[in-house]
Amino acid sequence: MNAIEFKGVDFSYSEDGAFAIKNLNFSVKEGEFVAVLGHNGSGKSTLARLTDGLLSADKGEITVFGTPMTDKNLYTIRKQVGIVFQNPDNQTVAAIVEDDVAFGAENIGLPREEIGKRIDFALKAVGMEEFRHSTPTRLSGGQKQRIAIAGVLALKPKVMILDESTAMLDPRGRREIIDVVTRLNKEEGMTVVLITHFMEEALLADRAIVMNRGEIVMEGTPADIFERHEELITYNLALPRIGYICKQLQAGGMDVPDTLDYEKLAEEIAKCVS
């Protein structure tokens, strides 16, 4: 079954304005890890908001695990779809970590003991158990964003959307988030939609989608997408650094294949040099 399905979806922010999303057909399978790439204004964040019902489509049909997006189904869908947003400070409700993680679980009226269990589970999943009684203001960006993930996990969603959740973090914080998300996907079978403009992050996905001006312009495995790096540049996206290293080595006459794996590249270089 498809976790998320868009059929001919249109959306624009103003009555007469340009389409933010134009005749979009898109689906994500259960358990899949999809990266959505795109420059600013490509419509990738709009996609996240439409999936969770924070925005409603002008035209077309959106379904989440077969449930159509309607006012009546709104909270059924929101329980299944969790979104982690960009700014960690702006998505924390409470002044103490455990209270913030509890927020979603309290909203859907779970009994106290169950909320306690879910806090344990969610904080463990993001490796933040020891900060349970801390105040989020004192944590690093990566830690705050892990708390935001825990807050979403406490609702036990089946899909997690990360809407540029790593954009404001330093490289270390970014790695922390990507590690957590990859583990959730591999070990818990969580369906993940990773929206980003950092190409490196898309490497771990099963499938990558490139959006431009509200449309899907490229689709394939991350390796496929990177292979078409000249096309990427026309959408204002750059290859991950390792991709350029490969290209430069090839241009310099070294016989290395295109790869996104640093260790593999090192081996290939070693072969060429010896």
């Binding site: 969790g82 979104i83 947003f85 998505q91 927020f103 909203n107 106290r112 806090i119």
Partner: peptide, 19 residues
């Protein structure tokens, strides 16, 4: 924050529990 609260199923005090 409003979006984040909506996304985490905030529906006001109705049927809400307290941890």
């Amino acid at each position: 924050l409003g979006d984040a609260m909506d996304a985490r199923c905030y529906m006001g005090s109705k049927n809400r529990t307290k941890y």
